[in-house]
């Protein structure tokens, strides 16, 4: 598996080298049936315990249109490919590739599209663009990593809501285990939800989701999420909030509440300054944190992202600095 995927990655790099009209970040268009791409990210973190370097994501992806109605996407990724603790000198890492996404799309009309297989859960802004190179900060808000499964192995019926202007829906469900349980934040056996997103104008959009999942440890969680974003050529302002109620084996109900507000100012297309305030409160684990983040993003080309940020936590020993370099091919 590892050798095969390493070969695929080599093939991708070779394809890029030989493609005449290749543009970084747009993949290699082989033909209508096959486009290939990939990405990697590396991170340096400094906190009160240690300094670490991680080659975090190494991924290859392929997608294409089999015919006007059917398309597919496959993506394999190794997370934590190489990790070095610079404080004590230890090294580890996993070169095992996991199925991140593996799905087909059956297009019936703009109002009715069926996606089946393993996919990113269509909730919120951060989860839909989960890779470092597409984000504006190295870190993601905690809500997007801790409060709902990032992936869905099931079916997502989606499209535009008929008779509306720019309103899209997702109705998704999973009634089985994940395609690759080693590679999901919350292993679960049931996951159902509904999302709406509305484009209010070129700059404004809003949306929300409701859902329910049951973990492998039989914890049932229901959640509701809402989001709002403004984005023009200079400013981007976004906010999201999520509240989740979990039933722990019928013994006790508890709530988790999380949200953030973020502002980004692009003073040139390449340079941006980002500030984010985050709130996270999980009553069950009694983990509560207020986080302030100040970050800087430099993109010499859009698919090349160099970022730095500092996080101030109300849990003082969690303050940290993060730096990353990521590239999308």
């Amino acid at each position: 598996m590892y050798l095969r995927l390493l070969s695929l990655f080599s093939l991708l790099l070779l394809s890029i080298g030989h493609a005449d009209d290749y543009e970084l970040g747009h993949g290699v268009h082989v033909n209508d049936y096959l486009n290939v791409g990939g990405y990697f990210s590396s991170e340096f973190e400094s906190n009160s315990q240690s300094d670490t370097f991680t080659l975090d994501d190494v991924a290859v992806m392929a997608y294409g249109d089999i015919n006007p109605m059917f398309s597919y996407l496959a993506e394999f990724e190794a997370v934590g490919f190489y990790h070095r603790n610079l404080t004590d000198g230890t090294e580890d890492g996993s070169q095992k590739f996991h199925a991140e996404r593996f799905y087909g799309d059956l297009w019936m009309s703009d109002d009715f599209n069926i996606r089946f297989g393993k996919m990113i859960t269509p909730i919120g802004y951060w989860n839909m663009e989960p890779i470092n190179v597409l984000r504006d900060t190295t870190s993601s808000p905690l809500y997007s990593m801790l409060l709902f499964p990032k992936f869905l192995t099931g079916i997502d019926i989606n499209g535009y809501v008929p008779k509306t202007e720019g309103m899209r829906y997702h109705l998704f469900g999973q009634n089985n285990r994940d395609l690759d349980e080693e590679y999901i934040n919350i292993p679960n056996t049931h996951f159902f939800g509904f999302s709406l997103e509305k484009e209010l104008s070129m700059e404004w959009n809003t949306g929300g989701s409701v859902g329910e999942y049951i973990t492998k440890t039989n914890q049932r969680t229901r959640f509701i999420e809402a989001n709002l974003k403004y984005d023009d050529t200079q400013w981007q302002i976004m906010t999201e909030a999520l509240i989740a109620k979990s039933d722990y084996n019928d013994i006790q109900d508890d709530y988790a509440l999380a949200g953030y507000a973020q502002a980004m100012y692009r003073y040139t297309p390449e340079h941006a300054l980002i500030g984010r305030y985050e709130y996270y409160n999980d009553h069950h684990t009694e983990y509560k944190d207020n986080i302030a983040i100040l970050g800087y993003s430099y993109r010499p080309l859009y698919p090349i992202s160099i970022k730095g940020e500092y996080q101030w936590h109300s849990q003082h020993d969690e303050n940290r600095a993060l730096f990353s370099l990521s590239v999308l091919f």
Binding site: G25, H26, G27, G37, L73, E129, P269, Y302, L328
Partner: peptide, 22 residues
């Protein structure tokens, strides 16, 4: 389209990750 070249390029880079081509 109402988008300049930089914004369009960013849009298509993001769409490449979503499996969509221009």
């Amino acid at each position: 389209i109402g988008m300049g070249r930089d914004r369009l390029n960013a849009y298509w880079v993001k769409q490449h990750f979503q499996g969509n081509s221009p």
